[in-house]
Design a protein around this nucleic acid. Structure first.
Length: 977
RNA sequence: GCCUUGGUGGUGGAAUGGUAGACACGCAGGACUUAAAAUCCUGUGGCAGCAAUGCCGUAAGGGUUCAAGUCCCUUCCGAGGUACCA
C-alpha cells in the first residue's frame, strides 16, 4: 500500500487537536523557549503560499526545540483591528467585527491544514474587548508616567509633582497642562498627515510618497490636537540596546537610521537691528566660518518678524506657493530648489559679519530648530541653494573641488577660520563647541530624527482611547471600569463636521455626562505588547501574570517580514522598555533573536492568443456567398462594405492560442506575421479553403499575439492543461491550440502575487494535491529563508517523491517491514551524519539544506536496503519537525503510544563518523588533477613522498622540480611548480 | 543618492579559504508495460574530441594566497528599504 497522505494527515491533525498535543504550560523544570511569528492581519483574500513560509520555519524550530527538551511556547493570533475591514464596512455597511470574524475563520481553516504546532488555547485577537481592555490599561499607565532624565527611565507621574514649583497652588487646568508636557501618552498639538479621503490621520510610516500606503489617497499636513506617545524620550535607549539583540543587520540599520542620532551644537545668532535671536542646530560647528547665509523653514515662527518691508510681498508670495505645494509635489521635484530672501541679516557670532536670512522649503520645521546655518562649501543642500541664488561659497575645510560639488567629508584641515585654522575637523569641532559654550551662544547637543508617535486615529475599527473630558480637562478612566467597549454607530464614516466615526455613537458619555475621546488607537497599539499576552491570554486581573512573564521572559525567536522594521518593531521595543521601567515585566527587549523571511513572489503564466480580422478581397458580386461563408464560420462576424469590398471583422473567434516559442520568435522577429498566419492555416486548413474559394484572408495589419495571464493552477512546469483551460472560462470552451512538441508551453514572468495576475497559489491546493508535509518541505526546499524568491511548483514532485521514498524505507512492497536486527556501521554512519547536519542546519536556520540532507540520507538508506529500527526510529524523529504527519504515523507503526513529539531528539554519535582514510585531491598550482587515497594515519611527509613517486605526478611535473609541496592532512595535496 | 542584500548550469539552489555545481527539477537515453501512468537505472556546466583527455568557467577587472565562489579594492547589474534630518 502506497502512503496515503490524505488519510494520515487528516487523522493526525484531528488527534493533535483533541489531545492538545501542543499545549504549553508553565513548567519550570524544563528550559523555556518562546517561538513567535508576527501575527497576521486577517485579510479577506485568505492566505497565499507566501504567508506560511515564516510560519513553517518557526514551526520546525518550535518542534525541534520541543524534541530537544525545551518547554516551548508557540502561539498564534490575529491583529484584527485595521483599515481594510473598516473600508469594507463603509462600502457594504457590514460591521467590521463580522467580516473580521469571517476572515479569521478562513485563516484558521487554512492554517489548520498545514499542521502547525500552535497552542490554539492561547489565541489572541486584538479586537476582542478582553484583549483591548489591557491595551487600554497600558495606555493609562503611559498617561500616568513621565520620563525622568536623571534616572533615565519612566516613573509614575507622582514623582514629578514634587519637582514642580507651587504645584498645589495651580488651578486644575494649569496642573493638567503642565503634567501633559511630561506624560508619555499625551495630548499635544502636532503636524499630522491628514488624509481627507480616509477621514483619518496617518503615521509617517503609513504615508508613502505623499499618499496613504493603503488606498493611495492624497495626504496633507495639518496642525491638529492629537494623542501622542513620547517615544522620543527613549531614542537613546532604543539605539543603544540594538547592540544587545540578535536581529538582522538590515533591521538594526533601519532602526538606527530612523532614530537618526546626530551630535552637534546649538547656536544662537543675533539678528541685525533687532532683539530677535535665531537658534540653529548644526552637526558641523567646525565649519562656522563657512556660514554665508541662513535658511529658515517656511513654517518658522519668526518668518513674519524677520521679513523686511520691501521683501514682504515676495515672502508672502513664496509662502503661498509652498503652502499649496502638496507633500507629493515637494517630493516629486526635489531637485527644484526654491527660496526667498527675508530682507533680514543675522550677525556672525565670531566674525561679526552680516549674513542674509533666507526662507527655503528644504528646511523642515519639525527637525532641529527649523533653521540652519548654511555652509555651502560643505553641505550639498546648502550648496545647491547657494548655486541657485548666487550666494557666496566659502571653503573652510581643505580637500574637494567646490567648483563641482560640496565637500562633505568630515576630514581635512580647517582654513579661512580664524582661531580654528590648521586644526583637523575633529579637533576644531571640540574647540569651537567649547568656545560656543564659554560665550554662552549655545551648547553641544544631541539631536534625534525620531519624532513622537501620533496615537489617535479618526477611525472606527480600533481600540477606543480610555479618556473622557471634564471641563475640557482630559481624564483617564479608572482601571476597574475597563474595557471601554467600542460603541455601535449608524455609519462608519466621519460625521458631517469632520468628527471621527465614534462621535456618531448615541448617548455615549462617561457617567452619562462627560464626552469620551472619539479617536481610536492605531494599528500598532495592540501589536506592541501581544507577545506578553500569549503568556497568559485569559488573565482577567492583569495583562500578564508576574508568574507567567517571569517564566517566559521574552521571545527567543521572532520570525516576520522586514516591512515592519521601523513601525511595529520600534514601537514594541518602546512599550517593552516602558513596561520594564515601571516594573511590570522583567525584560526590556521583546525578542532576543529576530529573522526575516523573504517574500514569495508570484510566477505568472501566459497564453498567447492569435488576434486577427478576416478580410474578403472579392468585389461585391460575391457578397452573398462570402457573407454566408463568414456567418457559417464566425458567428460574431461584423460585416462592413466599403467601396465594393466586403470586410468581415472577426474578433477572437475561434480562440486560437500559440505556444510560447512561437510568441518568443514572433517578438524577436524570427517569425513574421505571414509566418504566424501560415502556421494557423496549416493547423486549420479551413482558413486555406476560404482563401482559395472566397479570397478570405487575414488582414495582416490586424494580426497580433496577445499575452494573457492564465491561472497558474492549471499549468504545470509551464505546460498548460488543455482540458482544464477549456473549462476555465466559458469563452475558451472551444479554444484551439498550436503546440510545440505536442505541448502547449506557457510564458512566464515573476511579479507580485495578486489576484488580478492569476498567479496566486493558495496553500490549500498544494495540501489537497500533495499533502501538508510536502508543502512544508517544499517551501523550505525553495531556498534560504531570508531571500525573496518566486513561487514555482516545478520542483514539488521531487519532494513528493522523497516522501514516498521515505515511506518505502519502512514499508517494502506496501507491507510494514521494519526489522529488529542490529544495524550495520554504514547505516548508522548515514543516520548520524544526517543528525549532525540537521542540528547544524536548524541552529543556523538553513532549512533548505536540511531538506537536501534528508533526501541524501533516504537515498543512501534505500541504496543500503536498510530497514532496521535502530536507524529508522531516530530518522522518524529528526524528520518530524519538518514532516510531522508522516513522522507521527511512522512512530505509531513503530509501536509507540505517545506522540512522536514526546520523544527525544537523537544525539549524533561522532564515533560512527570517524573516517580511517581520505581520498586526497592531488592538485598542481591549485588545479586538481587526480585522486589518491591515503590512510589518515599516514604522516604528511610520507604522503608527499608517495605522491611525488606516482607515475601521474611525473606526467604533470613535465620534468620540472616542484618549488613547494603542500599537504594539508585530510584536505588536499598541492604541488607548486 | 544613501543603507541593506544578492549576482554560481536550462531552473531552484549547495559549497568551515582546500575536488565548484551537493540535493532537486527539467531534459536525453534505457528497463518494466499491449500502452500510458507510476517506479527504477544511466547520463547531463560550456567548448573540442569516438575516447582517454584537454581548455574555459561562480557579473566584470585587479589584488592577497601554495590555493579564492568564499578575503581585499574598483566597476556593473538586480531586489528590498529610505529619503531634503542641518
Amino acid at each position: 500500500m502506497e502512503y496515503n497522505f490524505k488519510e494520515v494527515e487528516a487523522k493526525w491533525r484531528a488527534k493533535w487537536a483533541s489531545d492538545k498535543t501542543y499545549k504549553s504550560e508553565i513548567n519550570s523544570d524544563k528550559p523555556k523557549c518562546y517561538v513567535l511569528d508576527m501575527f497576521p492581519y486577517p485579510s479577506g483574500a485568505g492566505l497565499h503560499v507566501g504567508h506560511p513560509l515564516g510560519y513553517i520555519a518557526s514551526d520546525i524550530y518550535a518542534r525541534y526545540k520541543r524534541l530537544k527538551g525545551f518547554n516551548v511556547l508557540h502561539p498564534m493570533g490575529y491583529d484584527s483591528f485595521g483599515l481594510p475591514a473598516e473600508q469594507y464596512a463603509i462600502q457594504t455597511g457590514q460591521h467590521p467585527a463580522l467580516t473580521t470574524e469571517q476572515n479569521i475563520n478562513r485563516y484558521r481553516e487554512q492554517l489548520d491544514k498545514i499542521g502547525f504546532s500552535f497552542d490554539w488555547d492561547r489565541e489572541v485577537r486584538t479586537s476582542d474587548p478582553s484583549y483591548y481592555k489591557w491595551t487600554q490599561w497600558i495606555f493609562i499607565q503611559l498617561f500616568n508616567s513621565w520620563y525622568n532624565p536623571e534616572t533615565n527611565k519612566a516613573e509614575s507621574i507622582e514623582t514629578l509633582i514634587p519637582k514642580i514649583k507651587n504645584f498645589d497652588q495651580l488651578s486644575e487646568k494649569e496642573q493638567s497642562d503642565i503634567l501633559m508636557e511630561y506624560r508619555l501618552a499625551y495630548l499635544g498639538e502636532a503636524f499630522v498627515n491628514w488624509c481627507p479621503a480616509l477621514g483619518t490621520v496617518l503615521a509617517n510610516d503609513e504615508v508613502k510618497d505623499g499618499v496613504s500606503e493603503r488606498g493611495g489617497h492624497p495626504v496633507e499636513r495639518k496642525m491638529m490636537k492629537q494623542w501622542s506617545m513620547r517615544i522620543s524620550n527613549y531614542a537613546q535607549r532604543l539605539l543603544d540596546d540594538l547592540e544587545g539583540i540578535d536581529w538582522t543587520e538590515s533591521i538594526k540599520e533601519s532602526q538606527r537610521y530612523w532614530i537618526g542620532r546626530s551630535e552637534g551644537s546649538s547656536l544662537r545668532f543675533e539678528v541685525q537691528n533687532s532683539e530677535l535671536k535665531l537658534e540653529v542646530f548644526t552637526t558641523r560647528p567646525d565649519t562656522i566660518f563657512g556660514v554665508s547665509f541662513m535658511v529658515i523653514a517656511p513654517e518658522h515662527e519668526l518668518v513674519e518678524q524677520l521679513t523686511s518691508a520691501d521683501q514682504k510681498q515676495a515672502v508672502e508670495d513664496y509662502l503661498e506657493k509652498t503652502k499649496n505645494r502638496s507633500e507629493r509635489e515637494r517630493m516629486a521635484d526635489v531637485k527644484n530648489v526654491t527660496g526667498v530672501f527675508t530682507g533680514a541679516y543675522a550677525i556672525h557670532p565670531f566674525s561679526g559679519k552680516q549674513i542674509p536670512v533666507w526662507i527655503g522649503d528644504y528646511v523642515l520645521a519639525g527637525y532641529g530648530t527649523g533653521a540652519v546655518m548654511a555652509v555651502a562649501g560643505h553641505d550639498s543642500r546648502d550648496y545647491a541653494f547657494a548655486k541657485q541664488f548666487n550666494l557666496p561659497i566659502i571653503p573652510v575645510v581643505e580637500g574637494g573641488d567646490l567648483e563641482k560639488e560640496a565637500y562633505e567629508a568630515k576630514a581635512g584641515k580647517i582654513i579661512n577660520s580664524d582661531f580654528l585654522d590648521g586644526l583637523e575637523v575633529k579637533d576644531a569641532m571640540k574647540k569651537v563647541i567649547a568656545k560656543i559654550e564659554e560665550l554662552g551662544l549655545g551648547k553641544g547637543k544631541i539631536n534625534y530624527r525620531l519624532r513622537d508617535a501620533v496615537f489617535g486615529r479618526q477611525r472606527y475599527w480600533g481600540e477606543p482611547i480610555p479618556v473622557f473630558y471634564k471641563d475640557g480637562i482630559p481624564q483617564v478612566l479608572p482601571e476597574n471600569e475597563l474595557p471601554l467597549v467600542l460603541p455601535e454607530v449608524d455609519k462608519f464614516l466621519p460625521t458631517e463636521d469632520g468628527e471621527p466615526p465614534l462621535a456618531r455613537a448615541k448617548d455615549w458619555k462617561y457617567k452619562g455626562e462627560f464626552e469620551y475621546e472619539t479617536t481610536t488607537m492605531p494599528g500598532w497599539a495592540g501589536s506592541s505588547w501581544y507577545f506578553l499576552r500569549y503568556m497568559d491570554p485569559k488573565n482577567d486581573s492583569a495583562f500578564v501574570s508576574k508568574e507567567a512573564v517571569d517564566y517566559w521572559q521574552n521571545v527567543d525567536l521572532y520570525i516576520g517580514g522586514s516591512e515592519h522594521a521601523t513601525g511595529h518593531l520600534l514601537y514594541v521595543r518602546f512599550w517593552t522598555k516602558f513596561l520594564n521601567d515601571r516594573g511590570f515585566i522583567p525584560v526590556n527587549e521583546p525578542a532576543k533573536k529576530l529573522i526575516n523571511q523573504g517574500m514569495i513572489q508570484g510566477r505568472s503564466n501566459f497564453v498567447y492568443r492569435f488576434d486577427f480580422h478576416g478580410k474578403v478581397l472579392f468585389q461585391s458580386t460575391f457578397e452573398e456567398n462570402s457573407e454566408g461563408m463568414a456567418r457559417e464560420s464566425f458567428e460574431d462576424a461584423k460585416v462592413e462594405v466599403e467601396s465594393d469590398v466586403l470586410y468581415y471583422f472577426v474578433d477572437n473567434s475561434p480562440n486560437i492560442f500559440l505556444s510560447h516559442n512561437y510568441y518568443a520568435e514572433f517578438i524577436n522577429g524570427k517569425l513574421s506575421k505571414e509566418d504566424i498566419c501560415n502556421l494557423v492555416k496549416i493547423k486549420f486548413p479551413f482558413f486555406n479553403d476560404y482563401t482559395e474559394r472566397y479570397g478570405v484572408d487575414f488582414e495582416l495589419s490586424s494580426i497580433k499575439l496577445t499575452a494573457l495571464h492564465v491561472d497558474v493552477n492549471i499549468v504545470e512546469n509551464d505546460v498548460l492543461d488543455l482540458d482544464a483551460f477549456k473549462n476555465w472560462r466559458e469563452e475558451y470552451k472551444n479554444a484551439e491550440f498550436i503546440l510545440e512538441d505536442g505541448k502547449y508551453i506557457c510564458g512566464n514572468e515573476v511579479e507580485k502575487m495578486s489576484k488580478s495576475k492569476w498567479n496566486v497559489v493558495s496553500p490549500d491546493l498544494i495540501v489537497e494535491k500533495s499533502g501538508a508535509d510536502v508543502l512544508r518541505l517544499y517551501e523550505m526546499f525553495l531556498g534560504p529563508l531570508e531571500l525573496s524568491k518566486p513561487w514555482n511548483t516545478n520542483g514539488i514532485s521531487g519532494v513528493s517523491n522523497f516522501i514516498r521514498k521515505l515511506w518505502r524505507l519502512y514499508n517494502q512492497d506496501g507491507v510494514w517491514s521494519v526489522s529488529e536486527e542490529k544495524a550495520e556501521k554504514k547505516e548508522l554512519k548515514s543516520l548520524h551524519k544526517t543528525i549532525k547536519k540537521i542540528v547544524e542546519d536548524i541552529e543556523r536556520f538553513s532549512f533548505n539544506t536540511s531538506v537536501s540532507n534528508f533526501m541524501i540520507c533516504v537515498n543512501e538508506l534505500t541504496e543500503l536496503k536498510c530497514n532496521k529500527r535502530e536507524v529508522l526510529e531516530p530518522l522518524a524523529i529528526i524528520i518530524s519537525p519538518y514532516a510531522p504527519h508522516i513522522a507521527e504515523e511512522l512512530w505509531l507503526k513503530l509501536g509507540h503510544k505517545d506522540s512522536i513529539f514526546t520523544a527525544t531528539f537523537p544525539v549524533c554519535n561522532e564515533s560512527y563518523l570517524v573516517e580511517s582514510s581520505f581520498n586526497y585531491p592531488i592538485s598542481f598550482n591549485g588545479k586538481t588533477r587526480f585522486m589518491r587515497e591515503f590512510d589518515l594515519s599516514v604522516p604528511k611527509e610520507e604522503v608527499e613522498k608517495e605522491v611525488m613517486a606516482m607515475e601521474q605526478t611525473q606526467k604533470y611535473l613535465e620534468g620540472k622540480t616542484p618549488k613547494k609541496v603542500i599537504v594539508v592532512p585530510g584536505k588536499i595535496v598541492n604541488i607548486v611548480l
